[in-house]
């Protein structure tokens, strides 16, 4: 096929060695964003819960975390974790890092993406917790439950359901942001698409394919979450008027 003097060659998507490279890139994108998501969810829950605590300094610490990570570009954070963070370690640890962690770029990507996404997750957790009326907490405490029991049986099961849709959106953002890891040399799918261009001059085909991959995976996740939402729906409450 030829359009505007450009001859399309879609075989670049499956031809050896490029086909294998693309598959590897997709797999890297997936586990990079999943690992980062685990970090983000854990850290984000802690920071988000901290932001609604009565103790002032705990609230302040949570707020400061969110401000710092949301008001600087993710790319700067990525560069910081990759280029600058190792230099803050003592000399012998730096050497150990260079000798023993050959794929440090990957781990810097996981850390950076996790820490950044955590600040976004924290905001959703906070909003979810604040949407529960204070009397709901009081009702649970008034029945004699301990703080842990109150969160475990009353607040968390409800708040997690409220948070499911916004957290799905945040996961998709995390998944898309993983593409930026290419700037520090991680061979995820966007980087692979760009990289193959330098051998074949067929970057248009590979970036189009990468776009299709992102859209398909996003669709799968949205579908999966819609199913989950239906399963954990609270009778008479959710999915009404929306």
């Amino acid at each position: 096929m030829e359009i505007f003097h450009y001859t399309f060659d879609w075989s670049v998507l499956w031809r050896s060695p490029y086909g294998g490279m693309l598959v590897k890139g997709i797999v890297t994108t997936l586990h990079l964003s999943l690992l980062a998501w685990v970090v983000a969810l854990t850290l984000g829950m802690v920071v988000g819960v901290a932001r609604v605590q009565p103790l002032r300094w705990v609230r302040f610490a949570g707020g400061a975390y969110v401000q710092v990570f949301r008001n600087t570009p993710f790319l700067v954070q990525l560069f910081f974790w990759y280029f600058a963070a190792p230099l803050l370690l003592p000399k012998q640890d730096q050497q150990w890092l260079y000798d023993n962690v050959p794929d440090y770029a990957y781990w810097a990507g996981v850390l950076a993406l996790g820490a950044y996404t955590a600040s976004r997750v924290a905001e959703q957790v906070r909003a979810g917790l604040l949407s529960i009326p204070p009397d709901q907490y009081r009702a649970a405490y008034a029945s004699g439950m301990t703080g842990f029991q109150v969160y475990r049986y009353v607040i968390a099961p409800f708040a997690l359901r409220i948070m499911l849709p916004p957290l799905t959106t945040e996961f998709l953002t995390c998944f898309k942001n993983s593409a930026l890891a290419m700037t520090i040399g991680v061979m995820e799918v966007t980087h692979t698409a760009y990289y193959i261009d330098s051998f074949t001059w067929h970057g248009l085909e590979t970036t189009s394919a990468a776009s299709a991959v992102y859209l398909c995976i996003a669709l799968c996740i949205i579908g999966l979450m819609a199913l989950t939402e239906k399963r954990v729906r609270i009778v008479g409450m959710m999915g009404r008027g929306r």
Binding site: P133, D135, Q136, R138, A139, A140, A142, S143, G144, Y153, V154, P157, F158, R161, I234, M237
Partner: peptide
């Protein structure tokens, strides 16, 4: 030992 009832019921919706 002390029961409490609220203005907006505060039943656990889930």
């Amino acid at each position: 030992e002390i029961g409490m009832v609220f203005q907006h019921f505060e039943l656990y919706p889930h």
